[in-house]
């Protein structure tokens, strides 16, 4: 799910950036430093949308750098366990398939794909029901439920399932 939240960060700035453009410089550096990063707590920072306030700078002992506490609003993407969302399939193999929902990767193991769907290899590997009416392949759109998340320093990785009511393929590129 996407959220609009307020975060705070201490920005360290070299004195050469001071002057009338100080504020612009702080904001530019903040965008460069923060946009595109990911933390386990807040998820992926997609875009900064506004600055709430920039506090008084504090000179660091010994270096001359000044740190400014900056409060900013941003759009973040944070997946939750139990959340249901739509995703695009990016890769299919006999272990299951990978899907992407925005910046996050989700793996759906073949144990969590309905039992009536069989893996078919070939140049377009896919999972298909026995009557061939439903097919999951690259670029299919699926609705899935996140059942687990793993967080490391710079990435969030999810495990999903489509073995539940109202989950599964919502749009098949081959059928369209």
């Amino acid at each position: 799910m996407f959220f609009h939240i307020v975060l705070e960060r201490n920005m360290q700035l070299h004195p050469r950036h001071f002057g009338r453009n100080l504020r612009d410089n702080i904001v530019a550096k903040l965008m460069k430093d923060v946009e595109g990063t990911c933390s386990g707590r807040h998820g992926f920072v997609v875009a900064i949308t506004g600055i709430e306030n920039i506090g008084k700078g504090l000179i660091r002992d010994g270096t001359g750098f000044v740190s400014f506490p900056v409060k900013y609003q941003c759009v973040v993407f944070r997946p939750f366990k139990g959340e249901i969302l739509e995703a695009v399939v990016t890769m299919v193999n006999k272990m299951g398939f990978f899907a992407e929902a925005g910046p996050v990767q989700i793996f759906v193991s073949n144990h969590l794909i309905p039992d009536d769907m069989e893996f078919q290899s070939g140049d377009m590997p896919n999972y298909t029901t026995s009557d061939g009416s439903v097919k999951i392949q690259k670029d299919s759109e699926v609705r899935l439920k996140i059942i687990g998340t793993r967080v490391d320093a710079t990435e969030i990785f999810c495990i999903g399932t489509i073995k539940d009511d109202f989950l599964g393929v919502i749009n098949d590129p081959a059928a369209a």
């Binding site: 959220f3 939240i5 759009v75 366990k81």
Partner: peptide, 24 residues
């Protein structure tokens, strides 16, 4: 304990403004 199905998403996110895909 996080579980979106029971709305356990942490206080910080529960109070935050959520965005629909179309708004994003």
């Amino acid at each position: 304990e996080e579980n979106a199905a029971e709305l356990k998403i942490g206080d910080e996110f529960l109070k935050a403004k959520c965005l629909m895909n179309c708004e994003v």
